[in-house]
Design a protein around this nucleic acid. Structure first.
Length: 581
RNA sequence: GGAUUGGUAGCUCAGUUGGAUAGAGCACUUGACUACGAAUCAAGGGGUCGGGGGUUCGAAUCCUCCCCAGUCCGCCA
């Protein structure tokens, strides 16, 4: 039950009445009409911009329309006051009972409260992580992983049908490097001296791969030329790395619905088919690119290449799909992969990428637009860098990998829930500072703690209530008489709860899971505030033995708060805590 | 040189797709507990929303030009 949607319905029908009475022209576009909480709570529960939006098309002054609307809305169920304000806002006040009436619904729906039908079952593919299968995941991947998984969870919650997908880059030169690196570890396992040349992967994580290779092949590969073992070792090592990646993801609580292999696109005609589809639209041609201005590579020479006409879709230059040796550039299989996703019938595609892929967005959007005839939108979410610090000082650690901080390092230090929540307390396109000291701090400054603490406090209240003999089951509380509720603090908290469905929809439609984290912080703040009032005034305490009706009503409010916090954390993939330690 | 993401209080950051007097935490100044955990709450000071121009009833938000920072820039993916 979304109170804002409900009141918006009242506003729209009031507008229709004015149209029917001839006081507003027909055929108005009502798309811009919003009903939102006003910035300043003193302005009331909700405000609508309807009069201002309609002013121009209706050719009437906004105040004039507002007056008429106020008249039409007067006496609508649940509205206690309608006032014209400022340039033409309508400030609306609701009967407080309307806000409290949301509680039984929240309690009845439990973890599903706030679920939306916004997506209407549209199919969305969220591709994220997609790290090269050449080693364990590091911090940068971790942010993308958490973001992608939370976004997927959010979209699912908002009524989309979501696929979580990982694109395995197992078709390029980097997996050959992996194979050579693993081969040195294999030689090491055979008692030979490994030669980890410049450019190979030096990390310890390949040592067990080398040992496993020896177990499988004995010493038989040591004297063979590279051409004899490269393919098999590559396959073996890639599989081992993907096992590692899956384990890392599992530690974060992430389960992919599908792993898609780049290699599977080669030799199966899929790349050719994708490019043929583009060629049929006259978007592929042989041409010569100009050297980039201002920064011409020294070995630059103009050459004819096979190019994709991405400029037709807003890119700055056309992009090569073939290398000079005739092989595909990485862009070609990427086109084929996205073609595959389009062909699988998704209504929307989302790519979660690292900031270093920023330059790649336009051409990929161009390709998807071309391949789907503009039917399938592609949203590329770039996750900026994570800056690791400890108590403000730069943090460096490299026990497993050789030169980077791994996902496991982070999880070992702070745990899954903290990692996930903190990574979501910043919007994806802003850099994130991750301070190992601060994220574990038990204080208000740390949003993870603050939100978890609110949940734990609510849980504690309910536990004590149960000990005192109150029925605290959700169905018991859903049936409670809520009329004792009505203090300013209770109303504020109930309003905050009433905003939950709206927050879900705004976050989902913007692909911004961080909004959920910020909302939870605000909700927690209202709850902490209310709880504290009980310290100052015994009458305000949740548990009042002298007033069981009031207590029961307040318990419903407390429980509803815990339910919403829990639902929100669920979207973010964070486990709510019942007690802090 | 170009692309891209940022620039909001001393610091770290939000800002409901263009709304009213721009918000929160930290820090600073005050005040409130002998436990429904004060691990918290309440109050106060603090701003040219990087800068200039434009669009309109109205701009932190949209357009344009500058300044600063991160990321990237044909045969790596």
């Amino acid at each position: 039950m979304d109170m804002f949607a409900e009141v918006k319905g009242l506003v729209l029908s009031a507008i229709e009445r004015l149209v029917a009475e001839g006081r507003l022209p027909r055929g108005l576009d009502l798309g811009g009409v919003t009903v939102e909480p006003p910035r300043d709570p003193a302005h009331g529960d909700m405000a609508t911009n309807a009069a201002m939006v309609l002013s121009r098309p209706a050719r009437k002054g906004p105040r004039e329309i507002a007056e008429a609307l106020a008249e039409a809305l007067a006496g609508a169920p649940g509205l206690t006051s309608v006032e014209v304000a400022g340039p033409g806002f309508l400030n609306l006040r609701l009967d407080p009972a309307r806000w409290f009436a949301l509680l039984p619904d929240i309690l009845a729906r439990g973890p599903d409260c706030g679920r939306s039908t916004l997506g209407q079952g549209r199919r969305v593919n969220v591709e994220f992580v997609s790290a090269n299968p050449t080693g364990p995941l590091h911090v940068g991947h971790t942010r993308g992983a958490v973001f992608g998984d939370a976004l997927a969870g959010l979209l699912d919650f908002a009524g989309y049908e979501v696929t979580r997908e990982y694109y395995i880059n197992d078709g390029g030169a980097q997996v050959d490097v992996l194979a050579r690196s693993a081969f040195e570890r294999y030689r090491e396992a055979c008692g030979l001296e490994p030669e980890i040349a410049e450019g190979l992967y030096p990390g310890d994580y390949l040592i067990p791969v080398g040992a496993a290779l020896r177990e499988k092949y004995g010493d038989s590969l040591t004297d063979l030329p590279e051409s004899a073992w490269l393919g098999e070792v590559r396959e073996f090592a890639t599989a081992a790395m993907m096992d590692l990646v899956r384990e890392d993801l599992a530690l974060l609580g992430i389960e992919m619905d599908r792993f898609f292999s780049e290699k599977s696109l080669y030799g199966t005609g899929q790349i050719e088919a994708a490019l043929a589809a583009l060629e049929a639209k006259d978007l592929i041609y042989e041409g010569v690119l100009e050297a980039p201005r201002g920064k011409t590579p020294e070995d630059w020479e103009a050459r004819e290449q096979t190019l994709f006409r991405s400029t037709a879709y807003g890119d700055d230059i056309d992009r090569p799909v073939k290398k000079s040796d005739g092989g595909w550039t990485y862009f070609a299989p990427d086109i084929a992969y996205h073609y595959n996703k389009v062909e699988r019938g998704y209504d929307e595609l989302i790519d979660v990428l690292g900031a270093d892929h920023g330059g790649y967005v336009k051409r990929m959007k161009a390709a998807v637009a071309a391949l789907s005839d503009g039917r399938v939108p592609l949203d590329c979410k770039l996750c900026q860098l994570v800056k690791l610090t400890r108590d403000g000082e730069p943090f460096k650690m490299s026990k497993r990998s050789g030169n980077f901080v791994t996902l496991r390092d982070v999880l070992d230090l702070v745990g899954r829930d903290v990692t996930r929540f903190v990574m979501l307390t910043r919007k994806n396109d802003a850099p994130l500072e991750f301070d190992f000291g601060k994220v574990l701090e038990q204080s208000k400054e740390n949003p993870v703690f603050y939100v978890q603490y609110a949940h734990a406090r609510a849980f504690s209240v309910l536990t004590r209530a149960a000990e005192a003999g109150f029925a605290t089951g959700d169905s018991d509380l859903a049936a409670v008489d809520l009329s004792p509720l009505g203090t300013a603090g209770e109303l504020r908290l109930a309003r905050a709860l009433g905003e939950w469905p709206r927050q879900v929809e705004v976050a989902a439609s913007n692909h911004e899971p961080h909004r959920i984290a910020f909302y939870l912080y605000e909700l927690a703040s209202e709850f902490h505030s209310l709880q504290h009032q009980g310290k100052l005034d015994p009458d305000m305490r949740f548990l009042r033995e002298d007033a069981p009706e009031t207590t029961r009503a307040r318990l419903a409010l407390v429980r509803a708060t815990a339910v919403v916090i829990s639902a929100g954390l669920g979207i973010l993939g964070v486990t709510p805590m019942n007690e802090m330690r």
